[in-house]
């Protein structure tokens, strides 16, 4: 793997990184609660939240900003965890939930509902989840040949993603006048999400995140290579499928609530690897924390940078994250003297 480190990352260093991320998370959360299109002072917010009467300030903070904050944290952690697990399944640093069809499947389902059955718009999350699961299942079925190997999963993913992508494009062309909903879905946004979304995601993401902690040992052994893992008594194909299922579940849960948010699942695990090394015992929790930080920062930025307008978190993510990641790659290259 690329994340080579000169020295073993000490427990102290990992502790420090986790502490810093946690502090960052708290600070960002306070900022996210505090800023927004309706400008309230800290004093006003504190007074309103802790008073018994129902003021506008309290409604905005408690019913708009707080649920959105919680969603950002959960989605960031889920997508990062999903990507991290998938990268061990594929033994490929380029794997992300899109690789196993989660995005394309959810996109296909959502586009179909939004454009062909607009009266069922309320059920989009449900269909998006089902679509994601179905596409993932299809890709693994196609890739199965006495077992799954990463190359076949990736290739069959490419094929199925392209078919679904073509279908989506065609559908959008035929309905080019009513694309607003589709675009919002495709560019992942947390705008207008409420407690009902939080309630759904807490259950799904909570379960998924707990499950991903159970994947740590398997993810580590897959990093040793298929033959080595097999000779250690690991059933490699079954492990791959189980880990992929956890990963797809997490990604699908976020897609159904917030639409497609790219980049987090791909890049956050990388940055975590740079920070704490490739042992999933440290890397996975770091990814979750960092994912929350990154998504919350992006969402807060997106809803405040242009007054009176919201930039979807998915777009902010890609625009800011891409260059930052390139910077990291180059900087690391220099450190290792190449």
């Amino acid at each position: 793997m690329k994340a080579s480190r000169k020295h073993k990352v000490s427990a102290l260093r990992i502790g420090t990184i986790w502490l810093l991320l946690a502090i960052l998370l708290v600070v960002l959360s306070l900022v996210a609660i505090n800023v927004g299109s309706a400008g309230y002072s800290v004093r006003e917010i504190v007074d309103a939240v802790f008073s018994a009467e129902k003021s506008t300030v309290k409604v905005v903070v408690m019913n708009l900003r707080l649920p959105r904050l919680i969603l950002a944290l959960l989605i960031g952690a889920s997508l990062s965890s999903s990507g991290a697990i998938l990268q061990s399944v594929m033994r490929n640093p380029l794997a992300d939930p899109g690789t196993i069809g989660v995005s394309a499947g959810a996109g296909t389902a959502a586009t179909t509902i939004l454009l062909l059955f607009p009266h069922m718009t309320n059920a989009v999350p449900l269909f998006a989840f089902a679509g994601a699961a179905l596409a993932c299942f299809l890709i693994y079925t196609m890739a199965w040949k006495g077992g799954v190997d990463p190359t076949r999963i990736i290739l069959s993913g490419v094929a199925i993603n392209s078919v679904l992508g073509a279908y989506n494009a065609l559908l959008q062309m035929l309905h080019s006048d009513s694309l607003e909903g589709v675009l919002a879905f495709m560019n992942g946004s947390l705008s207008g999400r409420s407690w009902s979304h939080v309630r759904v995601l807490v259950i799904y993401a909570g379960a998924g995140l707990l499950l991903s902690f159970l994947c740590i040992k398997s993810a580590n052994t897959l990093q040793l290579g298929d033959e080595m893992a097999k000779s250690l008594g690991v059933n490699v194909s079954v492990t791959r499928v189980l880990l992929s299922a956890v990963s797809a579940f997490l990604a699908a849960a976020t897609v159904s609530v917030a639409g497609m948010i790219g980049f987090v699942g791909l890049v956050v695990p990388h940055i975590s690897r740079i920070l704490v090394g490739s042992d999933y015992k440290q890397m996975l929790p770091t990814s979750m924390l960092l994912g929350s930080v990154v998504l919350l920062a992006a969402d807060t930025l997106g809803r405040t940078i242009v007054p009176g307008m919201e930039i979807p978190v998915g777009i902010v993510m890609s625009v800011t994250g891409g260059p930052f990641f390139l910077y990291l790659l180059r900087k690391r290259g220099k450190m290792r003297g190449n």
Binding site: M1, A3, L224, S278
Partner: peptide, 19 residues
Amino acid sequence: LARNIGVLPQIHSAPPDFQ
């Protein structure tokens, strides 16, 4: 099987930062 035989394949790799 893994408790009875140990196999070191020709190709094996670990992430370089593994202890």
